[in-house]
Write a protein that binds this DNA or RNA. Structure first.
Lengths: 223, 223
DNA sequence: ACGCAATAGTTATCAGACAACTTTTGCATT
DNA sequence: AATGCAAAAGTTGTCTGATAACTATTGCGT
């Protein structure tokens, strides 16, 4: 183990809530003295663990009353913490968000991209095509294509969503996407999309991107 | 002040990073003994504050080396901590994202909300109406209405966007939204929206929400 | 039945000590 | 002078035990 005791403790507590279900939403935790004894750590360490979970919205601390499991733990679910299980559900949610978000981003990009940005988008699109035709891995190229489109919206908050989307793409690949079928669809979808982008036809690009998202979700048996 | 000292301390530290810029991304904080003396709190309290910020990705603690401001603070900041100084540009970006996102969320909510969730949404909608008619501040009620809708999508990542939306609402109010005109629009928009929600008419709810977003943006001279 | 003070249960904060890890320093050996 | 290694300095990690402050309940007197 290389992690802090306090972080380990946070994970153990978290496991009691989401995995073991010994603690359910709304439940009250034992008081700090007792709980720290149960877990075999000092009260100070336990409190640091509690702070970590409280910052994530998993626990709610009420002075004089006790510490409680947040009523909406399930919806807060965060990465890097508990288990990669449920990836499938996360993946569906993530693609659902993309399916809403990226077609509109494509439309906005048509309206707002300057010439250099548009050229950049098209370059990256061609790079993806090359990868597919050459049979190389296209994960990175594909991601950069989508990222370039979103950046061209000139919307700060959309750009902030990029890392989230990057994770979606990464997970999708890891869980066995990228069949031959998807590759062919992607080739067609991108051609369509780039045609509209080049003409700065926002409505067209929006629909082309929507189709692209649908294909991706179908191929992965989402929705 | 009713907040914990440790939470207050977290906010003071956070302010040093994003507002005062006394600490920039990558910087090393003073060691814990010195910093706790500077801030006038015990080391234990400071450590709890650090845990809170570390959980949010603002700080990175490296044993034996020190505590550092995360290199990517700017990108991470979504949570409702400080820094409302997003000015007009951010506000436009934020509402643009909402305008894309919330209508679709409303449509999804129609399809997926269980009866209790739907009742909850309608309750909160009525609470907003009451606030407007009574001339009370409706900020909180309004946010809870929108939050209830988004939660009913049962989509984890949409729920994650909630804090962002909360910030949008907060900033909008702070920068002088909430004119009499907007109040009247909101009253009508919500009535329309709730009518469709109650009937679980997804397409209708989607358009009603889109109209609501447009009104809000118009009133604030965005777009 | 009511009001209110005492009490029990709980989190909040402090102080000081020692352990463990990382980087720098300085010295001995080659 | 260069190298390697041990000591030291700087830092976070953890523990202990005490006291303060807040909340809800209990029980008593009226």
């Amino acid at each position: 183990m290389r992690e802090n005791l306090s972080q380990q403790t946070a994970q153990r507590l978290y496991a009691r809530i989401v995995a073991e279900k010994r603690l359910r939403p709304g439940d009250k935790l034992p008081n700090e003295v007792e709980l720290s004894a149960q877990l075999g750590v000092s009260r100070a360490t336990l409190r640091e663990a509690i702070r970590t979970l409280a910052a994530r919205g998993v626990l709610e601390v009420r002075r004089g009353r006790g510490t409680f499991v947040s009523a909406r733990v399930e919806e807060i679910e965060d990465f890097g913490f508990g288990a990669l299980e449920g990836v499938r559900g996360q993946l569906r949610d993530l693609f659902e968000l993309r399916a809403i978000f990226e077609p509109q981003a494509a439309a906005l990009a048509c309206a707002r991209a300057d010439d250099r940005e548009l050229a950049d988008i098209l370059d990256r699109g061609r790079a993806v095509e090359d990868c597919i035709r050459a049979g190389r891995d296209r994960t990175k190229a594909d991601w950069e294509f989508h990222a370039a489109i979103v950046r061209a919206t000139h919307n700060e908050f959309m750009t902030r969503l990029l890392p989230l989307i990057g994770q979606a793409v990464g997970t999708a690949v890891a869980s066995g996407g990228h069949g031959a079928r998807l590759a062919q669809d992607t080739l067609r979808d991108h051609a369509l999309l780039m045609e509209f982008l080049e003409r700065r036809d926002g409505a067209g690009a929006q629909h082309a991107m929507a189709i692209h998202m649908r294909h991706a979700m179908d191929e992965m048996d989402l929705q």
